[in-house]
Amino acid sequence: MTIREEQPLPGGMNPTGIVRVGNTVRRPAGPWTPAVHALLTHLHGVGFRAAPRPLGIDEQGREVLTYAPGEVIWRDGFGLLDPVARLARVGRLIREFHDAVADFVPPPDACWQVVVPAEGDEIIAHHDLAPWNLVAEGGDGAWTFIDWDTAAPGSRLWDVAYAAHGFVPLSADRDLRRADAEARLRVFVDAYGLGDEGERRELVGALGRRTRAMYDFLREQNRRGRRPWTDIWARGDGDIWRTDAEYIEGREAGWERALL
């Protein structure tokens, strides 16, 4: 393998060291990699194809995954999916993942990379279901969620709340804020299939808590001087998560009205 064969790839919030080599992706491995590979193997074994397939470890100690062709759904850091049929597709895809992972039994020695502590541990959640981690082929082609390295115990609602923030989106930014955010949230949640009124009420509260949890995490990591989070804080992401949390928390009545 030569350096010229490696193409740097974009990814999530911190895609350092992720490259494409042919039809594979190579990325830094960690103590969590065996558990993540077990998870991905399970998902493919039960028929869920919207995730990379693990191919082991290369000679440089990097994890090897299948490459997902297409483009990352992204717009100035947040995704806008129009028409709403595409937003509904995301909701259904997340539900398919949650159903597929429901009977996954982690290895006895599983080690997970926990970034933001979750509310609940009913499933192994993705924890970063966002536009920057969804690769879509053109037209009606395959959609693939990438960047599974922070998969860890969590809950369905915690994953859904985070995904709603990015995909609806629920944003205070003047360029991203949607007048139809309530209606889009309803489309997203209906497509996911969250039918129980009690769960929908829980989700309304979780929307703000999950967003604020990300702000709290970045603030604390910056205070401790931990990279790459200090760099992410310096570019203003902390302010984005804080203002989005305030926006979401201040509109809970509207979210509840839309969902119930």
Rank of each mutant, 00 (worst) to 15 (best):
I3T: 12
I3N: 15
I3D: 13
E6H: 15
E6N: 15
P15A: 01
V19C: 11
V19R: 12
V21S: 09
V21N: 07
G22F: 06
W32I: 02
V36K: 00
A38Y: 08
L40Y: 04
G45Y: 02
F48I: 14
R49K: 13
A50T: 06
P52M: 01
R53Y: 11
G56D: 08
I57S: 04
D58R: 00
D58E: 00
E59V: 14
E59A: 12
G61Y: 07
R62L: 03
T66Q: 10
A68D: 05
P69L: 01
I73G: 09
D76M: 04
G77F: 03
F78A: 07
F78C: 06
V84L: 09
A85G: 14
R86A: 14
I94V: 08
E96C: 00
F97N: 14
A100V: 11
V101Y: 05
A102S: 09
D103Q: 14
V105C: 08
P107F: 12
V114F: 02
P117Q: 10
A118H: 07
A118T: 12
E119C: 15
D121I: 01
D121T: 04
W132T: 15
N133G: 08
N133I: 10
N133V: 09
L134D: 04
L134F: 05
A136M: 14
E137G: 12
G138Q: 15
G138S: 15
D140T: 14
A142I: 14
W143H: 12
W148D: 10
A151I: 10
A151K: 06
P153L: 10
A161S: 07
A161W: 07
Y162V: 10
Y162A: 11
Y162D: 15
H165C: 07
H165A: 09
A172E: 13
A179I: 13
D180R: 15
D180T: 12
A183C: 09
R184W: 05
R184S: 05
G193Y: 08
R200H: 01
L207T: 05
R210H: 07
T211K: 02
T211A: 03
E220C: 03
R226D: 15
R227Y: 08
W229N: 05
T230F: 00
D231P: 08
D231K: 06
I232Y: 07
W233I: 02
W233S: 02
A234D: 06
D239W: 08
R242D: 06
T243Q: 12
D244V: 03
Y247R: 13
I248K: 06
G250L: 01
G250H: 01
R251L: 02
E252R: 15
G254S: 07
G254Y: 05
A258Y: 09
L260G: 08
